[in-house]
């Protein structure tokens, strides 16, 4: 029998646990030029905001040891153009569509989510709460339990399908934030977003990013992400976890699932090898066969802890 890669999250079935991470696959069009998107469990779009955003001036990215820094600045087409120009393409794709939503005021999240509720093709919303809240002096929504709960609850009110809270690792206790998101009604967690970091050119003495700092991603962050997934899973939170951070091959996926992830997202690895999701699905199947498992779900949370 060929092993089954299907997974369920918040009552929705996915062909496999492999999703592409927000900001690393645009709105799907370009990636569809590399492989059919039906090979994915889901595609997660770039963060969508109420108004279009141009993003930060270049340079926006820098290479680091085993990873990269980015400060794209949430450049995106805005909800109007997204619905008019990107949704029709996504509607033709045979994969689950998750739209990542960002904003600088709670009201913006609510308005974007309201618009997305009318788009049938959108299976889920993923809330990027690693955004500065201008109403609260620029403190990140996801850095404060109360703001986290409030924003998830507000979006849940206007969006009728499942809502994922994408948690920031740049907090004292990710478990506390996860609990707050659950209180707010989160149906799943995405763990983790990028870690704050920077890099300086010692000849010019300038930061390598015009934003002065950015988000660290790629293989370098995998151990941190794994420990955070593990911590939230063990804390007894009910919502399923989507593990993110430095995943490049099937072994990484197995590690995340053993630590409690029900699915995973692939970000930076798409830049290095855009066909990574296809290879992972193939290799994951072979791993399940080799270890005599029928379903990938049998891996979830099965790490043998000391």
């Amino acid at each position: 029998m060929t092993p089954d890669l299907k997974v369920q999250l918040a009552g929705i079935e996915f062909a496999n646990p492999i999703m592409t991470a927000s900001g690393c696959c645009g709105y799907g069009e370009e990636l569809a030029g590399v492989f059919p998107l039906s090979k994915l469990g889901a595609l997660v779009t770039k963060s969508i905001t109420l108004k279009p955003r141009l993003g930060h001036p270049p340079p926006r990215t820098a290479e680091t040891a085993s990873g990269m820094l980015n400060a794209i600045g949430l450049a995106n087409v805005g909800i109007d153009q997204f619905v008019a120009e990107k949704v029709p393409f996504l509607a033709t794709q045979k994969t689950r569509i998750i739209v990542n939503v960002a904003g600088s005021k709670l009201q913006e999240y609510i308005e974007v989510a309201t618009r997305l509720d009318d788009c049938e093709v959108v299976d889920m919303i993923e809330l990027n709460i690693s955004c500065p809240n201008v109403d609260e002096g620029g403190m990140e929504f996801g850095a404060d339990p109360k703001m986290t709960e409030k924003s998830v609850a507000a979006v849940k009110k206007v969006f009728s399908r499942p809502v994922i809270a994408k948690l920031s690792p740049n907090v004292t206790s990710i478990v506390q934030i996860a609990q707050a998101a659950e209180q707010g009604g989160a149906d799943a967690f995405s763990i983790i977003n990028s870690l704050v970091g920077t890099s300086i050119d010692i000849e010019t003495r300038r930061p390598r990013l015009t934003n002065n700092r950015g988000g660290l991603t790629g293989p370098a962050i995998k151990p941190v992400a794994l420990a955070m997934v593990d911590a939230v899973y063990r804390s007894g939170c009910r919502p399923p976890i989507i593990g993110i951070g430095g995943i490049a091959d099937y072994r990484d996926v197995v590690e995340f699932m053993l630590c409690g992830a029900s699915a995973v997202q692939i970000g930076t690895a798409l830049f290095i090898a855009p066909d990574t999701p296809v290879k992972i699905a193939r290799d994951l199947k072979a791993y399940l066969k080799r270890t005599k498992l029928q379903s990938v779900t049998e891996l979830i949370g099965k790490v043998k802890r000391y």
Binding site: C24, G26, P58, R60, T61, N70, A75, L270, P274
Partner: peptide, 23 residues
């Protein structure tokens, strides 16, 4: 030229400003 993380349009890392505005 611009530094290119992905090379196929998904990361928005390789932008240059346009004279008409935007990137």
């Amino acid at each position: 030229e611009a530094p290119m993380p992905c090379g196929f349009g998904v990361c928005l890392g390789c932008v240059l400003p346009l004279k008409a505005g935007g990137y």
